[in-house]
């Protein structure tokens, strides 16, 4: 009885598990455990001002097992993939790829405060899965109607300008072997769920 009431001292382990989970889901070798907390990443970041946590802070949170807070942080969504931090990191951490991983995990657990960035990604991915190509008009139209309806008046002259200069495809371009692409993507999705 007494033994069962004692909470297992797993706080450290769960942290390690989250770090491992993030690393395992990152393309390439993340080297996240190599971070020495120097802060070069945040100092190199053009959008650090708009982040809830600098990348350094976020990586410390991941190590500390603060999964919920890390996945709710807007930091990965503010990452512009400019790779400044990646080329400057003295430890060679694949920072941008870790950010992608965290986005994917937050998306999976529906753990984000602003639905605009994941919404955009989902529409984009949906179109690529359907047509095999991205379709700028459909993507922006759907995204703006859903998330930026008040921005539309400002956008109209720009959209008209792009249209009259032949830079907007009215219809989506479809690849021929869509069935083959679907087969590949659904097999990949199954594999992704296994791990």
């Amino acid at each position: 009885m007494v033994v069962a009431q004692v909470s297992p001292p797993l706080a450290v382990d769960s942290g390690v598990r989250f770090l491992e989970e993030v690393s395992a889901k990152t393309a390439g070798v993340s080297r996240l455990e190599m971070c020495i907390q120097c802060g070069t990443c945040g100092g190199s970041c053009p959008s650090a001002d708009d982040m809830d946590h600098t990348p350094r802070m976020l990586f410390a949170m991941i190590r500390a097992g603060m999964k919920e807070q890390a996945l709710r942080s807007n930091t990965p969504w503010m990452c512009v993939s400019c790779y400044h931090c990646v080329v400057r990191c003295p430890q060679g951490v694949h920072i941008a790829d870790v950010m992608y991983t965290l986005k994917g995990m937050a998306e999976q657990e529906k753990s984000y405060r602003d639905s605009t960035p994941p919404g955009f990604a989902r529409v984009f991915v949906g179109q690529v899965e359907t047509f095999g190509r991205s379709w700028e008009l459909g993507l922006t139209a759907r995204h703006y109607l859903r998330h930026f309806i008040l921005r539309l008046p400002r956008m109209t002259p720009m959209a008209a300008g792009l249209f009259f200069r032949g830079r907007i495809g009215i219809l989506p371009h479809r690849i021929r072997q869509r069935k083959q692409l679907h087969a590949i993507l659904s097999r990949a999705e199954e594999l992704e769920k296994v791990s």
């Binding site: 986005k103 994917g104 984009f124 991915v125 690529v128 690849i175 021929r176 692409l181 993507l185």
Partner: peptide, 21 residues
Amino acid sequence: DWNCCGATEYVGVSLSPAYAL
């Protein structure tokens, strides 16, 4: 018959499908 590379969006959604694409 090439397809989209997924830009910076697909990798932030699901890893294996993004790289298979």
